[in-house]
């Protein structure tokens, strides 16, 4: 409960700022609409108003500011509008029994979540395997690490369409597999870096101890390096799962995708419906929050069970 108060305070401040920003963001379309409805606006005409700052417009036409909070196609929707839109596309859909319809964001979130989890699984496995290879072989350490770093300097937005095209060329149907690959591509790197650090975290004295027992490499891996790396591993999972979600959404952006939160964002952009973009963005954020919270809980339970001081 004590943790909730600062979090809630920040939330209230953010929503307040957002709400205040609606007025200047929406004043121009609000004035255009009012003018078309016959109201007298200073200065007259949309083109003339472009020369005037939003603050002046708000001062001179103060009676029309409130109209900006009730636009059908706002530049910046109000928190309440976004809330209503999210409810319309999630809770209301469930009530109407249309949870899995194409207009339900629950359906699109589920599509995104699936790819995210596959990508997360794939990326995490690759990250762990890479880290083990790097830790146990100088050759892979020198050959693999530079490529891992280079791979992260390529903008994923540029790479994503290529991965989709190549996947289609080799006969993979649908978007699921290429999306998971893009997601894994973003997710493996933090896991790799943290696991290399974690597997090398045992102190020299701890390694010396095993040496006096004449322990084999496999034994020192399972009994020392791996357990010692777990705190690092979980920390990297939190970054990794968020990266996997971003990867999936990017994989849904290139034209052609029709389902998934990324596709909703793109469609909202093409059809000029900011409300659709905003509600999809919020669902993505909620999804990310849930995933990170889940990993965090797993971390706490596992580490406590293992006897690490919580």
């Amino acid at each position: 409960m004590r943790n909730a108060i600062p979090v809630l305070t920040v939330l209230v401040v953010l929503v307040g700022l957002w709400w205040a920003a609606v007025a200047p963001m929406n004043i121009r379309p609000a004035l255009d609409l009012a003018e078309r409805g016959g109201a007298v606006i200073v200065p007259e005409g949309s083109v003339q108003r472009r020369e005037v700052s939003v603050w002046t417009l708000m001062l001179k036409n103060s009676s029309h500011v409130s109209a900006g909070y009730d636009l059908k196609r706002p530049r910046l929707p109000t928190p309440a509008q976004v809330g209503q839109e999210i409810w319309k596309t999630t809770g209301a859909m469930v009530l109407k029994g249309r949870t899995w319809s194409k207009r339900s964001l629950i359906y699109h979130s589920w599509i995104t979540l699936q790819s995210t989890l596959w990508g997360f699984l794939l990326g995490t496995s690759l990250g762990i395997l890479g880290a083990v290879a790097i830790t146990y072989s100088r050759v892979t350490s020198m050959s693999l690490m530079p490529w891992a770093i280079i791979s992260q300097t390529i903008p994923i937005v540029a790479l994503a369409p290529m991965i989709i095209v190549v996947a289609n060329q080799v006969g993979v149907e649908g978007r699921g597999v290429p999306k998971a690959i893009i997601s894994a591509y973003l997710c493996y790197f933090p896991v790799l870096v943290s696991m290399v650090k974690g597997l090398n975290s045992p102190k020299p004295a701890e390694l010396d101890l095993l040496k006096t027992y004449n322990a084999s490499g496999t034994q020192s891996f399972w009994k020392l390096r791996l357990p010692a790396s777990l705190p690092y591993f979980f920390t990297s999972l939190k970054v990794g799962v968020a990266a996997a979600l971003v990867g999936t959404i990017v994989g849904e952006l290139p034209t052609g995708a029709i389902s998934g939160l990324g596709a909703r964002i793109l469609i909202g952009d093409q059809f000029g419906t900011p409300l659709a973009i905003w509600s999809a963005l919020f669902l993505a954020a909620i999804l990310a929050g849930l995933l990170v919270t889940f990993v965090d809980t797993m971390q706490r339970v596992t580490l406590r069970k293992m006897g690490f001081r919580a």
Binding site: P227, A228, G307
Partner: peptide
């Protein structure tokens, strides 16, 4: 230093 493994 004792060097016990904290997870054991």
């Amino acid at each position: 230093a004792a060097g016990l493994y904290p997870w054991r």
